[in-house]
Nucleic acid binder design. Sequence first.
DNA 1: CGGGTTACCAGTCAAGTGTATTGTGTCGGC
DNA 2: GCCGACACAATACACTTGACTGGTAACCCG
Lengths: 200, 200
Amino acid sequence: MPKLVDHRERREAIAQALWRVVDQDGWTRATMREVAREAGVSLGHLQHYFPSRAALLAFAMELTAARTSDRVARGLAALDQPPHPQDVLRLVVAEMLPLHPDARASSRMSAAYVLEALHDPALRQQAGLGLREGRAMVERLVRQAIAQGEIAPDRDPDVETDLVLALTGFTPLLELGVVEPEAALAAVDQHLDRLFAGAP
Amino acid sequence: MPKLVDHRERREAIAQALWRVVDQDGWTRATMREVAREAGVSLGHLQHYFPSRAALLAFAMELTAARTSDRVARGLAALDQPPHPQDVLRLVVAEMLPLHPDARASSRMSAAYVLEALHDPALRQQAGLGLREGRAMVERLVRQAIAQGEIAPDRDPDVETDLVLALTGFTPLLELGVVEPEAALAAVDQHLDRLFAGAP
DNA sequence: CGGGTTACCAGTCAAGTGTATTGTGTCGGC
DNA sequence: GCCGACACAATACACTTGACTGGTAACCCG
């Protein structure tokens, strides 16, 4: 074998270049050439690691999901141990909203990804799976909080899970400056405060 | 002057062709030629009415907003007179979610539009204005309901407005089949029921 | 010290893009 | 009648796009 190269590392570096381009100019203008330029590699190099634009998107999205999970995990470590379920949910929602540069890039990647997935069966399945996974995770948190008596037992876990997830609806409002980050966070807190009103 | 043609009508017909293409294949594949084919006109014809792709998008989006308003107005007429504020809000939210074909097309147009607007200053302003307008309308409804005693007076109108708007966050979940339409509507109703819990 | 696998590059291709230009009817007012 | 404004069409232009090609160099293993 020839030169030793960490395939994974190269692919991640390229994917991060994709993020930057998507964040700045949108998925539409994230052409192979543009991504290669942003990554500081040749077009041939890029194609050596990603045979097609679709493959690049798929990988970048996987990485985006992983990154978001990481941010949540890191935030989790900064909380009390064990953390209050409300704080966990707050963290999860906050990291899905475009409230700081990293989260904004993730949010825009996801948006582009979902929009693309609507018209591509393969992507659609992958996206659906990812979203379902995320929903399941939130639902687990909600059910756990109910079991622990932190959320009133007469709350329907399914409905409450969906309502928490719907809080990501602030994304376009934040992106276009219709609501300020503080207002969005205040609303999120208001919702969670009510959800957790009941037990000590 | 030569042949009499209703400019407005032609433009609307073309915009509707755009909707169909965007709904089926996404804004990316909504090329001038594709839209012209879908509209059953020549490329030159299309260009006669829309000098650029951006102009086409802008007009189509205006029309989309108008159509959504129309659907709300039509739904409003079917309610009791005067309608209960909760029913009005429910209708507004329901018509913004992709729950039936027409609303789905509108939703996808809006999504494509917002995503495009993020990286285009001119569109950004137009989109921001539209969203602000929508928010103002919802806020008016909320404040009115508070004044009428239908919503408890200790509710913050700003926060409650934002929370109602956030319910549009169901869009991606609905589009990818992560939640069913009934579940989304149930969650919307749950939220509104709680919002209006307090006075008769 | 080859040999073969891998990394990477420059160049090319056909397809498709938005837009501009030019041409052809077609009709209303004078 | 006819001319100028208008609706519409056809074609051309200048690019960009994703994908492919052949080739070169680097390197590990035997």
